[in-house]
Amino acid sequence: MLSKEEVKHIADLSRLKLSEKEIELMQKDLSAVLDYFNLLKKIDTSKIKLETEKFVSTVNISHNFEDFDGLLGTRKDEAIHQSREVVEKLIQAFPDKKDDYIKVKAIL
């Protein structure tokens, strides 16, 4: 069972403020799921090599296409000019703004 302190620590890392009641519930719920996850601990995976060097590790599925990686067309990392209409819509969604800028709380 996770302690209250552990739950609070995870909540901090998650940027979530939890009430005392939520902390107690999380202790119970998270512990039950984490116990279930422990099922994996006893499986020997020493022979498995993860292809982490490929940026597509998450999509590294053995597709039928032999040249699958070659087909993964990535977009150039560039700023694409958007019309004023699109910009206006994005600005409209800002909860707090000054002119076209997002306003944030002081950090320092």
């Binding site: 909540a11 979530l16 939890l18 939520e22 519930l25 999380m26 998270l30 984490l34």
Partner: peptide, 23 residues
């Protein structure tokens, strides 16, 4: 500001999943 927005915006299951993943 972050803590209170996220506490108010997410429901119980989202909070559970965020915390399980963070862990």
């Amino acid at each position: 500001f972050y803590l209170s927005n996220r506490a108010g915006g997410f429901g119980a299951e989202s909070k559970r999943r965020i915390m399980l993943g963070t862990y």
